[in-house]
Design a protein around this nucleic acid. Sequence first.
DNA 1: CACTGTTATCGGATTATCCGATAATACCGA
DNA 2: TCGGTATTATCGGATAATCCGATAACAGTG
Lengths: 299, 299
Amino acid sequence: MNLRQLKYFVATAETAQVSRAASALSISQSSVTTAIRDLESSLGATLFLRTRSGMDLTDAGRELLASAYAILSKIDEAQNLRHRDTDASGKIRIAASYTVMGYFLPYHLDRLRRLHPNLDIELHELNRDSIEEGLLSGRFDVAVLLTSNITNPGLESETLLRSARRVWCASAHPFAQRRNITFDEIADEDYILLTVDEAANTAMKYWSAQTREPRVRLRTTSIEAVRSMVANGQGITILSDMVYRPWSLEGKRIATVMPGAQVPTMDIGLAWRRGAVFTPQMELIHAYFRQTFNSPYAS
Amino acid sequence: MNLRQLKYFVATAETAQVSRAASALSISQSSVTTAIRDLESSLGATLFLRTRSGMDLTDAGRELLASAYAILSKIDEAQNLRHRDTDASGKIRIAASYTVMGYFLPYHLDRLRRLHPNLDIELHELNRDSIEEGLLSGRFDVAVLLTSNITNPGLESETLLRSARRVWCASAHPFAQRRNITFDEIADEDYILLTVDEAANTAMKYWSAQTREPRVRLRTTSIEAVRSMVANGQGITILSDMVYRPWSLEGKRIATVMPGAQVPTMDIGLAWRRGAVFTPQMELIHAYFRQTFNSPYAS
DNA sequence: CACTGTTATCGGATTATCCGATAATACCGA
DNA sequence: TCGGTATTATCGGATAATCCGATAACAGTG
């Protein structure tokens, strides 16, 4: 994909004709046609329906159009980098749970350090209760945690990312060839239950909607242990894509399958004390996450 | 600017060395060097400080990096267009004030119509009081208006765009050559006061912080009239960039200058009844505006 | 003072892009 | 029925962008 192709695509979508788009862009019609053809083949989707009178956007095309608008406007914005004099120095105290700290934050902390080298990020790893208490008492400015389990009315939250939960099994397991696995089938297998953070609570929450219960063979707080057990065929589990890796530590492969019934997503987001006045540092963090996950998920 | 250049730039920023970036990208070092050189010249800014040990991001570079992350992740997102099955049909009732309807909405309505051809957008042009009342009574789903003047606690709002207010004058006026104009100087000139919507109220609000008052020569509800008067040198005014156009209807030129003292920005955004449950159609509208102005402005 | 690690620059090969002409298609009115 | 007039699609050759490898320039370091 290409910015050029994207521009030609937008012009065609807006004029509904390749030839009009070409003249609006002051280039030849064949270039536009080729660009759109290439774009379609690179995306593996038909973007327009070719009619006698021009080009009609398909649903896929409309979806791309929305993205294209966003991309091109961001490019525009990037092109005049005027110094927004946000104060990038100072300290911010961030709390996070174990899983978030290990599987979500490292990547973003790395980026944040590069983007704001003078911002002093103070990290605290704690369990949910301590995090919520710390936010309320003002020991932390903001927290990154599972937003779906927040019930404290004194906190405000914003979901950034939803990660689907899937069935994990060994690649040799018969489930690995299936497209769907029912809860009944899962209940017939040995189950590895992760007990770190709120994983066990959450699992029990959606299992309670079922008639049967998982046959728990092992409870562990180690995600690596879960991976090894599953990879070795000693049981299956249900965990979110965020902590999924295709390989166990010993190098054996793990497969994933969609569960048949609805399993809630794992929602990760920011939380802060309700009504808290954002410091410039909090604004930076908030703006960063909003920008990278500018998500249609409200909360 | 180019996606290729952007990718090379990000790789260089992350590895802090052209040569490491090149090997990470599996291309030659000279290509990366050239791409960054071209990117810098096209932006007119230095992105890195060249040191003996590699490349250090400048402030401008860090700013671009933030944009680049956003752009590339949007590209990623665009590349796998999976059908989000949001219901794009149905009706939404949007209220807007005169200025917003004339200068802000047309562009976006055009885009929304293309993105969601089955969404029936019902528009209502009203003054602020009627809009607020209509939101509360449920006659409108959402409104687009000046968010800075919202005081009704029954409404929730989100600012999308801040448009700076500047001094407008004829291009031949001595002010046009200046970089700053004090309020005292403005008070010595004839002033054209726009009275449409809340323009007059807002103007009076920031004038009241000054010792002097504007010498109002004309009050009008027509922005075109303001433009003509100003272009003909019959007075000056202060209005937001949103309604600024460089030419009057007769083709005479209008210049803008920054006011010396702080003039509040004109903030445009969405408003809805506090606690309202978003319909799928409202989600669409909200998501669209959030996406196109994914703004660091909270409210 | 040579050695090692940087980035910068140059010429030539390769690849992408563009254009104009032409083909293919389907509607539309005589 | 049959040209006429809109479309978009395709092809070959010209042009421009991009890439690579070699080499230069530079600054620490032992």
